[in-house]
C-alpha cells in the first residue's frame, strides 16, 4: 500500500502531494462526467424489457440480460443498416483515395497553369456548410434521376457521389502536403534508371505515402460512417437506411424500443470507438499534416 502511494506520487516531484491529490480528484471527476452518459447507454441496453422506463440510476441493472440485443438482431433491420452503411462508406473511401492520390501528385510536382486557383478552390470547398450544398445537390439529383434514369435519389449512388464531393478536396489537400515532403531526388533517380513519370509515381511515391493514404482513407471512412444529414435527405426508403437513420427510427419509438436503440448504439459504437481511438494519433497528425508546408 505504501509502495502504491509512493508510486502514485513519485514522478511529479514538482507538485506537492496535496496538489497532486487535487489534480487526480479533478481528473477523476472529469472522467466520470465524460464516461457517465456512455455508460448509461450500455446500462439501458442491458435492462430487461419490462424495466426500460425506470428512474433507476444504477449502472449495472440487477437483472441484466442480453434480451435487447437478441431481439434487435433477430427482429430488426440492424444488419441491413450496417451493410448499407458499409457499402456506401467503403465506396466513398476508395473513390476518395484513388482520385486524391493522382490529383494531389500533379499538384505537388508540376506548376501547371491554373494550379493556384484550383488549390484555392479546393480550400474554399471546405468553407461551405454541407447543408448549403444539399439544396442544389438534391434538386440536381432529382433532375438527373427523372431525366436520365440514373437513380441518384433513392439509391446509394447519390449518397456516394455527394459524400465523395465533400471528401475528395480535403483528401487532395492532405496528400499534396504529404507528397511535398518527399524529396524529388527519389523520382529523378528512378527516372535515370529508366522509369517513366508514372512509373516513378507508382513505384516510389505511392509506397512511400502509405501512411498518408491510410489517413485519407480513414478520414473519408469516418466522415461517411457517421454522416446523418446527407443520407437523411437522399435515402428516404427504409430498406436503404444507413445505421444513423435506423437508430433514429428505433429512438423515435421511445416507449417501446429504447432498450433496442441502446443495444444498437452499443453494437455500432464499439467498433467505431475502437477504430477512432486506435487511429486518433494519425487522425490528429493528419489535421496538421497538410498545413505544415502549405
Amino acid at each position: 500500500m505504501k509502495g502504491l502511494i509512493r508510486w502514485f506520487f513519485f514522478r511529479s516531484r514538482g507538485d506537492s502531494p496535496f496538489k497532486l491529490l487535487l489534480i487526480h480528484l479533478a481528473l477523476i471527476m472529469a472522467c466520470l462526467i465524460a464516461i457517465y452518459p456512455v455508460a448509461r447507454v450500455v446500462s439501458i441496453s442491458l435492462r430487461p424489457g419490462d424495466r426500460l422506463l425506470s428512474t433507476d440510476l444504477a449502472l449495472i441493472p440487477r437483472d441484466a440480460t442480453w434480451s435487447n440485443y437478441t431481439r434487435l438482431l433477430a427482429s430488426k433491420d440492424f444488419f441491413l443498416w450496417v451493410w448499407n452503411s458499409l457499402t456506401v462508406t467503403i465506396s466513398v473511401s476508395v473513390i476518395g483515395v484513388i482520385l486524391a492520390a493522382t490529383s494531389a501528385y500533379a499538384f505537388s510536382r508540376w506548376k501547371f497553369p491554373g494550379r493556384a486557383p484550383a488549390l484555392v478552390l479546393l480550400l474554399s470547398t471546405q468553407m461551405v456548410p454541407a447543408i448549403m450544398m444539399l439544396i442544389p445537390l438534391y434538386l440536381m439529383f432529382v433532375g438527373i434521376t427523372r431525366q436520365f434514369g440514373i437513380p441518384l435519389v433513392g439509391s446509394y449512388l447519390g449518397l456516394i457521389v455527394a459524400q465523395s464531393a465533400v471528401g475528395v478536396p480535403f483528401s487532395i489537400w492532405i496528400l499534396k502536403g504529404y507528397y511535398d515532403t518527399i524529396p524529388v531526388d527519389l523520382e529523378e533517380a528512378a527516372k535515370i534508371d529508366g522509369a517513366g513519370p508514372l512509373g516513378a509515381f507508382y513505384r516510389i511515391i505511392l509506397p512511400l505515402s502509405t501512411p498518408a493514404l491510410a489517413i485519407v482513407f480513414l478520414f473519408n471512412f469516418m466522415a461517411s460512417w457517421v454522416d446523418y444529414i446527407l443520407p437523411r435527405v437522399i435515402l428516404p426508403k427504409p430498406e436503404l437506411f444507413t445505421w444513423p437513420l435506423g437508430l433514429q427510427r428505433l429512438q423515435g419509438q421511445f416507449q417501446t424500443e429504447w432498450g433496442m436503440f441502446a443495444a444498437a448504439s452499443v453494437l455500432v459504437a464499439i467498433p467505431s470507438m475502437a477504430l477512432f481511438l486506435y487511429s486518433s494519433k494519425w487522425l490528429i497528425s493528419g489535421l496538421t499534416l497538410g498545413s505544415v508546408k502549405g
Binding site: A34, V38, V226, Y228, V268, A269, M273, F276
Partner: peptide
C-alpha cells in the same frame, strides 16, 4: 470518449 463515440448516437 465524447469525441470518439459517433455524434449521432
Amino acid at each position: 470518449f465524447p469525441w470518439a463515440i459517433p455524434q449521432v448516437i
